[in-house]
């Protein structure tokens, strides 16, 4: 799905992905983790990728047997130093009361997080999570 980089769309994006993943019968905690992570990635695209203009944010979600993969991409400013950006508390927008915890939350709430970015071209965040890990539903 694609939408304009308006903050009102943040809720729409995370609720859509949550509805999509519900097919895999996730636990309440797993849904919460995915919703929060999607919200982080989409918010980043809205505030950091397009700070002074409107742009397009793309969200793709794929379901595997017991896993969801979500890709959030923009064609905005890009990130100069990805390693630094992923560190806890690192933010370039402290003046806007950002806490620099977005990537840390995605990393902790999902199983895998990949960040690709080219300055001037945009950023793509790919994250995945196994569903129903605790229940081991595929073992019987």
């Amino acid at each position: 799905m694609e939408f304009a980089s308006k903050s009102a769309n943040e809720a729409f994006a995370r609720v859509s992905v949550a509805a999509f993943v519900s097919q895999l019968d996730p636990t309440i905690e797993e849904i919460a983790d995915i919703k929060t992570s999607v919200s982080e990635a989409v918010t980043n695209a809205i505030i950091h990728a397009y700070p002074n203009k409107d742009g397009v944010v793309k969200v793709r979600a794929l379901l595997y047997e017991d896993e969801i993969e979500v890709e959030v991409s923009d064609t905005g400013e890009g990130i100069e130093n990805i390693e630094e950006a992923r560190e806890p508390l690192y933010t370039t927008k402290g003046n806007l009361e950002r806490s620099g915890m977005g990537f840390t939350i995605m990393e902790n709430f999902m199983d895998e997080l990949k960040v690709e970015s080219i300055v001037g071209l945009g950023t793509k965040v790919t994250m995945s999570k196994k569903i129903n890990k605790a229940l081991q539903k595929n073992t019987y």
């Binding site: 995370r14 919460a32 919703k35 929060t36 919200s39 982080e40 918010t43 806007l96 009361e97 950002r98 806490s99 915890m101 977005g102 939350i105």
Partner: peptide, 13 residues
């Protein structure tokens, strides 16, 4: 029933 990192910034501020 939902909060992301914006809540952290909100409370610190």
């Amino acid at each position: 029933n939902f909060m992301d990192s914006a809540g952290i910034g909100l409370i610190i501020g």
